[in-house]
């Protein structure tokens, strides 16, 4: 359903500029074909804040190793040199860690924002950035509700930096570096459907350990990154004011009006022009 809507909007946008479709529609999944997104489940009750995920991520993607450690009261952020961070929060149930990286939304705002398809939701689920298409407008950064994409401001050939769920490794049949190396097994890789089932099972089996929510199940229309935690989301650094519908749907209304405007306004204008033509003949004007 979600995908259908996206493609419908694509088609709408095309109508809007009255252009031939090109290759963009070829990527649309065949109707009825099941799309199973991969995702990652992060379990705060298991995470010990060892930063192994940060270190292996930096090694895998060629970034400097982290120099600071998670500290309560300090929000560490991802940056153009770092795709993931773990933060520590003092909560009603003691210290709780939360990992931060791209959420790999089901219907990503960054992908809807991108006018060159550089930000791309792969059929496997990861949202990736493709440098050969990107023109560096940073509209993805403006649109992302999680402020995930980062930009290399001090480069003459800048890139957008964000977690890509180790898409290259997934294509080789491997799993993301952070999930593979987490010594506490706090990071689980799998299909989103299985991960939600697993998260429900954990919450059901140990109701004293887990708070009753899966962050990412409904937020912004569902994300590939899912979280379970001992405390409610507001205590461990999650954004709790986000919509439960997809962010591209916010500009849907506007895009829906485009084809009607393109058809109706010229007709309307031509009509007025014809209707008022006589005014112009009556005046003996000396202009062109």
């Amino acid at each position: 359903m979600g995908l259908d809507r996206r493609n419908f909007m694509k088609a709408l946008g095309l109508t809007g500029v009255t252009l031939a479709a090109g290759n963009s529609l070829k990527a649309a999944p065949v109707k009825g074909e099941e799309v199973e997104f991969f995702g990652v489940l992060y379990d705060s009750t298991r995470c010990v804040g060892c930063q192994t995920c940060e270190i292996t991520c930096a090694e895998t993607h060629g970034f400097p190793a982290p120099t600071d450690a998670p500290t309560a009261g300090v929000i560490r952020k991802t940056s153009e040199n770092c795709r993931t961070v773990v933060n520590l929060f003092n909560t009603s149930k003691g210290e709780v860690y939360t990992k931060n990286q791209c959420m790999h939304c089901n219907e990503p705002a960054c992908v809807a924002a991108c006018l060159t398809q550089a930000m791309y939701k792969t059929k496997e689920g990861p949202v990736i950035w493709r440098g050969n298409k990107c023109m560096g407008c940073r509209y993805c950064m403006v649109s992302c509700p999680f402020d995930v994409p980062k930009f290399e401001y001090f480069s003459s050939n800048p890139r957008i930096i964000k977690c890509d769920m180790c898409y290259d490794r997934i294509k080789e049949g491997k799993i993301p570096a952070c999930a593979e190396n987490c010594p506490a097994e706090a990071i689980t890789f799998g299909t989103r459907r299985d991960l939600i089932r697993e998260a429900r099972k954990r919450i059901h089996d140990q109701p004293d350990v887990y708070a009753d929510f899966i962050y990412g199940e409904d937020e912004v229309g569902g994300t590939g990154e899912l979280y379970v935690s001992p405390v409610p989301p507001i205590e461990s650094g999650f954004k709790t004011t986000l919509l439960n519908e997809s962010y591209p749907s916010l500009s849907k209304g506007f895009l829906y009006t485009v084809p009607s405007v393109f058809v109706l306004v010229p007709v309307f204008l031509l009509g007025i022009h014809e209707a008022t033509k006589n005014n112009h003949h009556n005046e003996g004007d000396d202009n062109e």
Binding site: R6, M9, K10, A11, L12, G13, L14, G16, V17, L19, G22, N23, S24, A112, A113, C114, L115, T116, Q117, A118, K133, C137, Y139, P248, S251, F254, L255, V258
Partner: peptide, 14 residues
């Protein structure tokens, strides 16, 4: 072949 046709910015650019 890189048309991000569902982008408002795509519309604005055109």
């Amino acid at each position: 072949n890189s048309f991000g046709t569902n982008s408002v910015l795509f519309l604005v650019a055109w």
